[in-house]
Write a protein that binds this DNA or RNA. Structure first.
Length: 158
DNA sequence: GCAATGATTTACT
DNA sequence: GTAAATCATTGCC
């Protein structure tokens, strides 16, 4: 699986400079909420708000490993033959999971969506970091090693 | 009110 | 490798 971190302190973030807009206001809430928005007119991206109130920070989920319901994902991602392509990519995984803007602002602690420990026993030693993807416009901040992947995972966006 | 653009994916040349 | 798809949100008029 694969994630990226975003903070109001850097240009790659929608809340850069601490500026709150209609779209990103959920990031200014305390952690535990979902931040879902539409990008490029066709792709939903799924984030988890992480920090305290008024400290706009979130984690973008770029790729996941399907543990349950893989057949449902395959149905939503019609045309995909390789299971490793089902959820490997920020736009791909939201389509596989049926995520759309209706999920924006929902609590991951007390609603129909949540995150749970699947018991994979992933060790810190297996986490690899690197520069984030797709934010070249962020200049220097695009170089921040805020992309986290599980070394050797088959479910990575690239 | 209107034009510009993006935390991407897919298909085509 | 390059381009099209496609629209909510943003920023400026």
């Amino acid at each position: 699986m694969e994630t990226e971190a975003y903070s109001w302190k850097e240009r790659g973030c929608h809340a850069y400079g601490g500026k709150m807009t209609n779209r990103n206001s959920i990031m200014f809430s305390k952690g535990g909420y979902a931040y879902v928005y539409l990008c490029y007119g066709l792709h939903h991206l799924f984030n988890v708000v992480t920090n305290l109130e008024n400290a706009a920070e979130a984690v973008l989920v770029r790729a996941i490993e399907p543990i349950e319901g893989e057949s449902f994902m395959a149905a939503r991602r019609s045309g995909v033959i390789n299971r490793y392509q089902l959820t490997s990519g920020p736009g791909r995984l939201t389509k596989a999971l049926g995520i759309d803007r209706k999920w924006n602002g929902k609590s991951l602690l007390d609603s129909e969506i949540w995150i749970e420990d699947a018991g994979l026993k992933i060790l810190n030693a297996n986490i690899r970091t690197g520069p984030r993807i797709g934010i070249d416009y962020a200049g220097e901040d695009a170089m921040l090693p805020w992309r986290f992947t599980i070394e050797g995972s088959l479910w990575l966006s690239k």
